[in-house]
């Protein structure tokens, strides 16, 4: 499904990721965790072919994408849904138009758009807001629209870049349940997150990246002792007041 083989990407002297080899199977639900600047974004951007790898091979659905011609990139992105922390909805389009837009891009007929968009909107639970504009929605509702847009073309992979980062805990959990539901339909999900409680409670596969390398890959892991240890080791010995940083 997604296979990295000894992939290295650096930005000048800064390392993005280094010698990363990892395999994500079809139908997996994977959390990608690690401190800021660890290489999570590089990982995602390599999958979307927003940037080129310096070395190594990346396969998506069995297809090598490191040497993919520019004109084939749109096709690659269509097989990959993406959801962002800041939703990135088109402000001048209604909820319906925002979702329909993703279908127009792949040249779907108006008839199938009129049929499929309501289905997806009802799947994510915002059928009643179809004619509203993004600014008229709550953050959670906006993220649902973004998810609807990401899955409307039935992508094989859904990448979620901190999808709960801007949401309150209750709303965040609603979104997680929605993602789980989408995952159950067979879509592979790769979610970048800093939300410890979510990762811990979901009990899914966790890939931890630090300084450009994969430092942990647990089939059913938690956000990580590693993180806590690293933070503790930064503190002066003699253990003053330590509050858990989330």
């Amino acid at each position: 499904m997604i296979a990295f083989d000894n992939v290295t990407k650096s930005y000048g002297t800064n390392i993005g990721i280094q010698d990363v080899s990892v395999k994500i199977n079809k139908g997996d639900f994977v959390f990608l965790v690690g401190p800021s600047g660890a290489g999570k974004s590089t990982f995602i951007r390599l999958i979307l072919k927003e940037i080129e790898a310096d070395r190594g091979s990346i396969k998506m659905n069995g297809m090598e994408i490191t040497n993919l011609a520019n004109r084939h990139i749109p096709k690659l992105r269509r097989s990959t849904g993406i959801v962002f922390q800041d939703f990135r909805l088109l402000p001048k389009k209604t909820v319906f138009e925002n979702v329909a837009f993703a279908m127009e891009i792949v040249h779907m007929s108006q008839r199938s758009i009129r049929r499929q968009v309501p289905q997806v909107l009802s799947l994510v639970g915002i059928s009643s807001k179809a004619s509203k504009y993004p600014h008229e929605l709550s953050a959670g509702e906006q993220q649902r629209v973004a998810i609807a847009r990401a899955i409307v073309n039935n992508p094989t992979v859904l990448i979620a870049d901190e999808p709960t980062g801007n949401l309150d805990p209750d709303t965040a959990w609603e979104i997680m349940r929605l993602l789980e539901q989408i995952n159950l339909r067979g879509t592979t999900i790769v979610m970048v997150t800093h939300a410890k409680d979510i990762v811990d409670k979901m009990g899914k596969r966790v890939i931890a990246i630090d300084k450009g390398r994969i430092v942990r890959d647990d089939a059913s892991g938690s956000y990580g002792a590693y993180e806590d240890e690293r933070m503790l080791s930064c503190l002066p010995t003699g253990g003053v007041f330590v509050s858990h940083v989330k």
Binding site: R71, P74, R77, R78, I105, V106
Partner: peptide
């Protein structure tokens, strides 16, 4: 610009 970057993420071709 934002709209265009979103279009690209969703997989729009340059000509589209």
């Amino acid at each position: 610009e934002r709209e265009i970057s979103i279009m690209k993420y969703v997989g729009a071709t340059n000509w589209f």
